[in-house]
């Protein structure tokens, strides 16, 4: 699995709970390292062990934890670049939802060996969707739920998200759009650069 994914987990723990907790996680997970390099590849087998260790050290359930990771990825000042890249997906939250199918390809365009799980949007009505995603990253459905909930806020849309469970290597999140222009949302200038 790509170092960017492991690094994201490391930064989530470090930025939210402090470096000491991360060192504890690294020991509990028996990583044999303290720092993941964002641009190197690591064994896939580390992922479940690492997530379990983060849960144990922080005293959180894995689903809750991974949802927080999703939120962190698009809301923390240190990950502003990622929020911006997500906003390139569309002018509205609905457009963003429609761009999710392309997300793995977009990721690969940026970093050619970054393989995200498969993502598919199903549209039942103009306000009811579900996102079905692969689990090559464990608990990816929960990550997407946290990420999309935060992006809805970012666009100023009011949406209800619910984890529908998973089976056979896929997880499903349902999305009900209550209002597209509920709040002002955060600003996004196409030409601005994340520092």
């Amino acid at each position: 699995m790509h170092g960017l994914i492991y690094r994201a987990l490391q930064c989530f723990v470090t930025d939210s709970y402090g470096p000491d907790r991360w060192i504890e996680v690294a020991m509990v997970a028996d990583l044999g390292l303290v720092e993941f390099e964002a641009m190197l590849m690591y064994d896939d087998a580390i992922a479940p062990r690492l997530i379990a260790a983060v849960g144990a050290v922080l005293g959180r359930s894995e689903p809750d934890l991974m949802e927080d990771v999703g939120t962190y990825l698009v809301s923390h000042p240190n990950t502003e670049g990622l929020r911006r890249l997500m906003r390139f997906g569309g002018v509205t939250f609905v457009e963003l939802l429609h761009s999710l199918d392309d997300l793995p390809d977009r990721a690969r365009l940026a970093v050619s060996d970054l393989n995200l799980p498969h993502i598919e949007l199903r549209e039942y009505s103009s306000s009811h969707f579900s996102v079905i995603c692969g689990t090559s990253i464990p608990r990816f459905g929960h990550v997407m739920m946290g990420l999309l909930r935060t992006m809805a806020d970012d666009y100023g849309a009011l949406a209800l998200l619910e984890f529908q469970g998973g089976a056979k290597g896929t997880e499903t999140v349902s999305i009900t759009l209550v209002e597209t222009e509920f709040a002002k949302g955060r600003s996004f200038a196409l030409g601005a650069r994340a520092s």
Binding site: G81, R106, A110, A194
Partner: peptide, 18 residues
């Protein structure tokens, strides 16, 4: 194109740090 420029700059920065 703007997306790519930003994504590539971000990735390049990660390489530079590495």
């Amino acid at each position: 194109m703007l997306y790519l420029v930003e994504a590539k700059s971000t990735a390049m920065e990660a390489w530079r740090k590495l």
